[in-house]
Amino acid sequence: MKRFIFISACLVVLFCLPYISAAQMTAAQILTKVDANLNSAKDQTLMTTITLIDKAGKTSARTMSLIQKGSDKRLVKFLSPADQKGIAFLSLPNDNLTVYLPAFGKTRKIASSVKNTKFAGTDFSYEDMEAKKYSSKWTPKLLRTDGSNYVLELSLKSGMTSDYSKLIMFARTSDCYPVKIEHYDKGGKLYKTITASKIEKVGNYLIGKETVMADHKTGTKTKMSITSAKFDQGLTDDKFTEREMIK
């Protein structure tokens, strides 16, 4: 009988261990795991469809290919609509930004002030599109566990700059994948909300195949759907060059 009770107790402990350890996770640990979910792939190749939804619900779509290595090398090429086809953005570390405009037939360095605007007319800012780790820019505080999500408040670290005063992040307790992030402006008002859905495992990585950014000030939304994703293809640095932009 004692043996049965002991084994049963061990099984209960083993069964509950993940939940006990999850409950004991600190805000920093959760954010680290969020970053790991979002940035653990060495490289990624994505095909995406971006749908712009205006206040009245009218939509317009554009498609682009994106390759990324680590968190700071990215090449985006627009495939549609026709008036943007062929335009390419190369983003390298230290605000090294280059654009290729087919109409001019040459690449051009662009000033980092372009980050002041929205990315390609979407509701995403350049800052939103950055692949930098949240933990390197924001200090997390665990507000609560809300059903199946951790709710973190992220405040800006000193020395860092952002368009947002704070973020409220909802990350799944099961795997720390962020499903919603509220962005607050400098006045503390809710500015934008990004939600991720259709979260699936592709290879070794979790990916939200559909992401919607809602701008509460303008009433517009941008839906980004990933139609194809490949990870750890062994992309070399020479894929992130001006030579590749003009090909």
Binding site: L97, R108, A111, S113
Partner: peptide
């Protein structure tokens, strides 16, 4: 030449 200084594009 072309580049960027304090967010301003220079060429």
């Amino acid at each position: 030449f072309a580049g960027s200084l304090w967010g301003v594009g220079l060429r």
